[in-house]
Write a protein that binds this DNA or RNA. Structure first.
Lengths: 219, 219
DNA sequence: TATTTATTCAAGAAATCTATTGAATAATTG
DNA sequence: CAATTATTCAATAGATTTCTTGAATAAATA
């Protein structure tokens, strides 16, 4: 094989892989599948796009070996092809968060409206756990909590949070988390809790980032 | 800001960032700029494409804040905007190498033709250095060696290698390296050296990967 | 076996991306 | 100051991507 053909092949393949990621809906799908497998309909619902369109995006991701599918009865269940897909997406995402002014601005604006800009990193949370000085709350839907969560976290799905505000445990700071840095459940929870005067911040990252670092999880 | 608008903005921005990477020439440019800054003409030469086309690709990369430029006299010197760009590209690249059958096949075919498939990882090289059991040869152009190289490496640019074959040092295995896993200088060097019966393998990675791990370098 | 259901496929219009060409710009040199 | 040089810009044609619509498929159920 020629030197030139080699380079052309390699970089074309890698560009194809990258192109398969380079669409807002497909990135959102990857982020969603980081929580666990989902059917086409569930994904379409979450993204608010048509089933046919969702299916086509999934074909693109499958064609690039970014997701895998297994069929069970009526349903096609899609999942990420490997942890490396997640790691690679996180790399891109963090580059965007740290270097793109527009993304930083959007994050900041959204969170400031919800009094949620002051977030806690995984490392800070680990410190607080060691000092037994924190109440960790998982505000994802119960199904996701049951599929795996930070050890010691309590499950209060965001749509049940209002019922628990009255008798909130005192003394420790509350840290809420959900699916990742772009998951808004945690910001909404911070908004509700801090309006009640409860000391609370969100975890900057989410469960997938915790899990991929092999930190303690429960099922 | 609405939840929906927030997600749409964030993922669109990230998709734009990813799209800026998703072209074979632009990935090659990123890989090249990992060696240091380059003028438009140098980049065009390396990629064998027109200057105008190169310039346009550079505008796309600049628009996504992936590269930065400074002008000096006639020349525009482009460089990577940050180490995070490199890390992000490495993430994608490694996903491709490890998970895409077509890339693996191309690498394997190219290297087997050059008796260069058996490569050494950075970790293995570190072991060999500790045992003082290795001759490290940098086969990149001299200019790149002078801009930074693995400590203890000897510079023999690939086009001068033939002159040094006769009196090659005996006793230690030779490890050659160049710009990264897709750089072919190292494979060509392995081919030339092993045809002379000299024990040699290539470093799987290249100088940028060594440097980004903060391993010892010299200038 | 006919019907229902979840998903995929196919075709087409609109938008975007790419490489080429030649002109425009802006710094340096004669 | 005119000429040269490196780079960018603008316009364009061809290729690719995207979303929509409606039909096709294939597994489960009546």
């Amino acid at each position: 094989m020629e030197k030139h053909e080699f380079k052309s092949r390699i970089y074309s393949e890698l560009a194809a892989l990258t192109k398969a990621m380079s669409n807002p809906f497909r990135l959102q799908i990857i982020d969603l599948l980081a929580q666990g497998s989902r059917t086409v309909e569930e994904i379409a619902d979450q993204l608010s796009i048509s089933i046919a369109n969702t299916s086509q995006h999934l074909q693109v991701l499958k064609g690039a070996s970014l997701v895998a599918v297994y069929k069970q009865g009526h349903y096609a269940h899609y999942r990420l092809a490997s942890d490396e897909v997640l790691a690679s997406w996180h790399g891109l995402r963090d580059l965007g968060i740290n270097r793109m002014a527009e993304i930083d601005r959007t994050l900041r604006e959204f969170r400031e409206e919800r009094e949620s800009f002051d977030s806690v990193s995984i490392n800070e949370l680990l410190d607080k756990i060691q000092q037994d000085n924190v109440l960790i709350v998982d505000v994802r839907p119960e199904k996701e909590f049951n599929a795996g969560h930070i050890s010691g976290a309590r499950s209060i799905p965001i749509d049940q949070l209002a019922q628990h505000l009255a008798d909130w445990p005192q003394g420790k700071e509350t840290i809420v988390y959900c699916r990742g840095p772009f998951c808004v459940f945690a910001d909404e929870a911070v908004q509700m809790l801090s309006q009640k005067g409860i000391p609370v911040r969100r975890l900057e990252e989410g469960f997938p980032e915790w899990k991929i670092r092999h930190l303690p999880i429960s099922i």
